[in-house]
Design a protein around this nucleic acid. Structure first.
Lengths: 218, 218
DNA sequence: TAATAAAATTAGGTTTGCCTAATTTTATTA
DNA sequence: TAATAAAATTAGGCAAACCTAATTTTATTA
C-alpha cells in the first residue's frame, strides 16, 4: 500500500507523462508540479524506485513501471469519480471540486471506487471533461486538441479544460463557458496573439492566447 | 486546524467521556482506546493542552475544553453522516461502514458535512443508532439503556448498538437483528447469565450477557 | 573550449507521531 | 505502614516527508 505522499508523486508523474510537451520527466519538473523542493523529490525518487513503482535514468528521467502506472490510474479514477459526486450530488461549483477530490482520492478501501462508480451511473467523463478510467484501468483518450489550434472563422465545441485551477474555472464561469459550449474564432490579434471569440453566438469577447490554450475541443 | 492524529485523540476522548462507566479519562485509557503506547499519549496530551483543546489534571484526568468538544463533535458528525452515505447510497453492509468512515471523517472542507447532510435528507441517526450531531453541534441524547437491563418476559426494540466492531455486527446480521428489531427476554440462565431470547417472535435463541450488554434499547 | 548557468544530488536538520526502556509517582494490599 | 503492583512520565530513538545550504554534475553559451 502506498502512502498519501507516494500517491501524490505517482499521480504527478502520470500527469506529466501524459503531457505531449513534456519529453523527459526531470527531478525539477516533479518538484515544480508538486510545489516541493528538488531535494525532496530526490528522496522520493529513491523510495519509489525501491518499491518498483518507477524507473529512473539520469538521461531519460522518471518513468512509471507497469505497476506504478496501474496505481496512478486508480488514484485518478477515484479523483474523477469523486469530482462527479461533488458536483452532481453535493452541488458544489465547478471550481470548488478539485481541491476536495484531492483529499478524497486517497481514501483506500477495496471496492469504494467501484461502488461510487455504480452509484454515479458509470460516468465516462469528469466535470472537467477528463475521461474516467474504468475499474480495469482502461481509459478513453484525453482530448488533446486545443482551441489555440482552431482556424479563424471555425466553430468548436468545448470538450474539456486543461487547467483545473479555480482561477481559470471561475473565469470560465464568468464567461459562461462550460463543457459543450460552442466557441467561434473570429479574429486573431497579431500583436499579442489574443483572440476575439464568440461564445454560443454571443457578442465578441477578447481572450488571451494562454486562455485558449487551456480549452480543449473535440 | 487539527491533524489527522489530533482528531483521532479528540474523538477517542469524547467517546470515553460519554461512557457512563468511565469516571476519569486516564493516559492508559486513551492509550488502550487508540491502540497506542501510553508514552505516546503523554506526548499528545501535552500537544492538545498547548492547543487548548483539552485540560489535564493528574487527579481528574483529561477533559475536553469547550473548543475541543466542538471539534470532536464535528468529527463525529462527519463520521456518522458518511456512515449513512456508505450504507444507503453505496449499499455497503452494516459491518463494513465503520472503517471507511474512519478515513472519510478527516476530510476537511468548510461545508462538506453540511452538503452531505442535506444530500442525505438530514438524517437523525446513523446506521448504528447513534444520533448525528447537527451543524450547530446540538446532538440528541444517545440511547443508554441496554438490553441487559430489561426484565425477563419483557419485549424491547433495538434502538442502537454499543459495539461497532465488524465481529459484533456480523453476528447481529447472522441473528437477523438490526435497528428496530423486537427482542423478547425469555429466560436468564443463572449459571453464566446467558439469556434466552426471541427475535421478532422467532424461535428461542441463547446469547451471552456480553452480547446483550451491547444492544441498546429505546 | 572555457566560463557560466542550471539541474541534480548530498549532507545535515526539522517536525510529527509513534516507539522501547528506564524511572518516578501513585495506588493497592499484605 | 511497608512491600508490591500499576500507572504515568521521562529520556532517547526512529521513520516519513519535508527543508536549506553546499557541492557536484550536466548543459548552455560566449
Amino acid at each position: 500500500m502506498n502512502t498519501f505522499s507516494e500517491e501524490n508523486y505517482l499521480k504527478a508523474i502520470f500527469r506529466l507523462s501524459q503531457m505531449p510537451t513534456v519529453s523527459k520527466i526531470s527531478t525539477s519538473a516533479i518538484a515544480e508540479a508538486l510545489g516541493n523542493n528538488p531535494a525532496s523529490v530526490v528522496d522520493m525518487i529513491r523510495k519509489l524506485t525501491d518499491k518498483q513503482l518507477i524507473e529512473y535514468d539520469k538521461k531519460k528521467g522518471v518513468k512509471l513501471t507497469a505497476h506504478g502506472q496501474k496505481d496512478a490510474i486508480q488514484i485518478i479514477r477515484k479523483h474523477r469519480l469523486w469530482e462527479v459526486f461533488l458536483l452532481e450530488k453535493l452541488e458544489y461549483r465547478w471550481d470548488e471540486i478539485h481541491d476536495i477530490a484531492e483529499e478524497l482520492e486517497h481514501i483506500k478501501h477495496s471496492d469504494l471506487a467501484d461502488r461510487l462508480d455504480k452509484f454515479l451511473g458509470f460516468p465516462e467523463y469528469d466535470p472537467h471533461g477528463d475521461p474516467i478510467p474504468k475499474a480495469n484501468g482502461k481509459m478513453a483518450k484525453s482530448f488533446s486538441a486545443s482551441l489555440a489550434d482552431g482556424k479563424t472563422g471555425g466553430t468548436y465545441r468545448v470538450a474539456a479544460v486543461r487547467d483545473t485551477s479555480s482561477a481559470f474555472l471561475q473565469y470560465l464561469h464568468k464567461l459562461k463557458i462550460s463543457i459543450g459550449t460552442q466557441i467561434r474564432l473570429i479574429e486573431q490579434i497579431a500583436f499579442d496573439q489574443s483572440l476575439v471569440i464568440s461564445i454560443d453566438n454571443g457578442e465578441p469577447t477578447t481572450v488571451s492566447s494562454k486562455f485558449v490554450e487551456n480549452i480543449l475541443i473535440s
